[in-house]
């Protein structure tokens, strides 16, 4: 029912790049993403889109078909959002290069708004691919580990760890309930769908609350006093990875600046 939760996580754990220092991967994808945002140029976004996609498919070993499916996730939002930037409505046709008249108003496109929409589209897609680079190669535990080293408060870290663990338990419960419902003629018709879904949600709440209480009793009986302690994972740092990131980013900046002059 919610295969994506498992799929992205699955790829992160199976990734050949899993053992690369998570800090290096975060630095690589976030610094590139920020450059894409800061420069906001179609050329740079296009280059990042290409380079990142190649790394994801070749180095991270993500299947091409699955990668394209992932790219389709934000497409609904992206297309609608770009549509809003592309078209505008005015009472005067003179504002536009191309327009159609609907009743008393003009809906039109200008050359500027067209390029704005293209710029927005490529920038967003390039940033999304940078995000995918990170999440398809880095398990959440590793990201949490880095957040902890960056000084995120303990309460947030603890909650993140517990919520992450709970998610998979609850998803399984939800799946079991869903299968039971479908095999008993659930989700039939619109009213049936919303009825079955509300039954699923309320039962999921009761079931998972019980599971979480049981888990808490287990923790208490093992000496839990409000603080969770974890063994810090040790990662190998490689100067080469940092250097590659810096070189790529310098290259992007050079291309950007030389294109401007």
């Amino acid at each position: 029912m919610s295969p994506n939760v498992i799929r992205i996580d699955h790829y992160a754990y199976m990734s050949p790049l899993r053992n690369v220092h998570p800090g290096e991967k975060i630095f690589f994808s976030l610094s590139t993403m920020l450059l894409v945002l800061a420069m906001d140029s179609i050329l740079i976004s296009g280059i990042v889109l290409g380079v990142m996609s190649l790394i994801i498919v070749w180095r991270a070993g993500v299947k091409c078909g699955y990668f394209l499916k992932l790219l389709a996730i934000p497409l609904g939002f992206l297309l609608l959002g770009c549509l809003a930037v592309l078209f505008s409505v005015s009472s005067e046709g003179a504002d536009y290069d191309y327009f159609i008249k609907v009743g008393a108003v003009f809906i039109g496109v200008s050359v500027d708004s067209f390029w704005n929409a293209v710029q927005l589209f490529t920038r967003s897609l390039a940033a999304v691919v940078c995000l995918y680079m990170l999440i398809l190669t880095t398990p959440i535990n590793h990201i949490i580990c880095i957040l902890q080293r960056l000084g995120v408060p303990a309460i947030i870290i603890n909650l993140m760890v517990l919520i992450y663990n709970n998610i998979f338990l609850f998803v399984r419960s939800a799946d079991e309930i869903y299968i039971a419902q479908v095999s008993r003629y659930g989700y039939h018709g619109w009213v049936g769908q919303i009825r079955s879904l509300s039954l699923l949600c309320s039962n999921l709440l009761v079931k998972s609350l019980k599971a979480s209480n049981d888990a808490f009793n287990g923790m208490i009986s093992r000496g839990f006093d409000g603080e969770l302690k974890f063994v810090d994972e040790v990662f190998e740092t490689k100067a080469g990875n940092i250097a590659a990131t810096v070189i790529l980013n310098c290259l992007l900046i050079t291309i950007y600046l030389s294109g401007r002059v």
Partner: peptide, 22 residues
Amino acid sequence: PKLLALLAFAGAFVFVLSSLKM
């Protein structure tokens, strides 16, 4: 301390809720 478990339950519940299809 029990509230930590309760909060973790609530967060995961909202997450799973938001991954269900309407």
